[in-house]
Design a protein around this nucleic acid. Structure first.
Lengths: 132, 132
DNA sequence: GAACACTAGATGCACGTGCATTGAATGTCC
DNA sequence: GGACATTCAATGCACGTGCATCTAGTGTTC
């Protein structure tokens, strides 16, 4: 069973993934920070919240479709709240839970930041879909 | 000019990249840490050094084909040296430069860790080349 | 050869992260 | 209903990172 091919391809694909990700992430992080004083994690969190708009979301649900760990998310939301971009409120039904909602300011900042994000993504991902 | 399609695809591809990367990276990080007391960055550094074996490599050259920043690389190599996996020696030709070489122990640890890496990569990347 | 710009790599610092733990609320079992 | 396990979110802690800066060696210009 000649599995050399698959093993080699594996590492190559991993390195490709590693490189792609880091290039985009690095640039995006800087662009968001410089232009909007946001972390990539903060923007992504905001982005998820806006996607599911009108609806309060529990921390848990947020964490579910994100890559952030529970503690990271907790602190990220704390930072966003401190900046006035989201609001936390406790869930009456289950008083352990916490609801998170985007504020007006949060919506504005998100809209602006999204422009930056799109531009950065386009710069890196538009021309070469082969090397995703 | 209907660019909606491309913009939408852009974000989708980014989220896909984000998710793929974080799943693999997270798992790999843990596996390497638990099994070999290595950071992902440390392993990748070691990996690059082994690839270019027999040859001393300057920090600069190492940094060139890696995603790590200059300061991160500097500290990573410092940690690897402290653990006895690599050795630094100064470059006589240009005494600002520093050579980095894998030690015997480093080779062994790398070989062991590579097994773990391959296994982890296989788990995540083997079945679904479509969603690289 | 003295002054100045530049480069290689190390380091102080602030910050975001994961892990483990904590505190509070809920569920369960008898 | 009281004791115990479980869940949600927050937090102490150690650690790796990037940015800016620093030190030392090199190149250049006069």
């Amino acid at each position: 069973m000649p599995r050399m091919t698959s093993e080699t391809g594996l590492v190559e694909r991993w390195r490709s993934l590693l490189t792609s990700y880091n290039q985009v992430a690095c640039d995006l992080e800087r662009a968001l920070h410089d232009g909007h004083d946001l972390t990539m994690g903060e923007f992504e969190t905001l982005d998820r919240l806006v996607d599911a708009n009108c609806e309060d979301r529990r921390m848990q649900d947020l964490a579910a479709d994100m890559y952030l760990s529970q503690s990271a998310l907790s602190r990220t939301v704390a930072r966003l709240e401190k900046s006035g971009l989201v609001a936390r409120s406790l869930c009456e039904a289950d008083r352990r839970g916490v609801f998170v909602k985007v504020t007006e300011v949060g919506l504005q900042v998100h809209a602006e930041a999204r422009t930056t994000q799109r531009a950065t993504l386009a710069k890196h991902l538009s021309a070469d879909p082969a090397r995703l």
